[in-house]
Amino acid sequence: MNNSVANTTRLLWAGLRALLVLTVLTGVIYPLAVTGVAQAAFNDKANGSEIKDHEGKVVGSKLIGQTYKGLQWFQPRPSNGLGENSVNTQYQLILSGATNLSGDNKELIKSVKDAKAAVIKDNSTPGHQVKPSDVPADAVTSSGSGLDPHISPEYAELQVHRVAAKNHLPVGEVEKLVHEHTDGRILGFMGEPRVNVLELNIDLKELAAKG
């Protein structure tokens, strides 16, 4: 009996020492070494890919979505995840997450329906009526992170007439801007085509100021 207690103690003691030494290796040395290399070689990316506007002011991250008040700006995807009923407000980053609603959930059906109606109404200008079939899926659904920095090229395209009208810019110029900011798939096949909303709005602001 005493023998088995002693054996167990010895085993657990060995286990603790193994855990501590492996913690030093994988929980201290490894992350610090990676951080050192990352900070030296990819300083900008390792710190969140900050992006500056044309005045040189930091206005966010290339990778993180934001809220743009006012219909003169290109709008991101809806973000109905953890935003509404907890401490997070949409695109505030302290809490990321999805709605987790299923395809037959009444709440989701309603929010898609409402979002679609709003997208059609907001983006229809005199002389340009948006059709329901023009609205892409990403315009009416929330992303997984709730921080999606991108919209599909179709959704950007759809917003061109509205943005042009609100900023008193020619449609052609805004369209050109969207084309410049449309990224294809990486190497032609990885991921999906997309438009970075923050980068697009920064250049739109510049264009509108000049225009």
Binding site: R77, G103, V135, A137, D138, T141, S143, I151, S152, E192
Partner: peptide, 10 residues
């Protein structure tokens, strides 16, 4: 919506 994009990233 025209696609199962809820919970998916662009």
């Amino acid at each position: 919506a025209g696609g199962a994009m809820e919970g998916k990233e662009t």
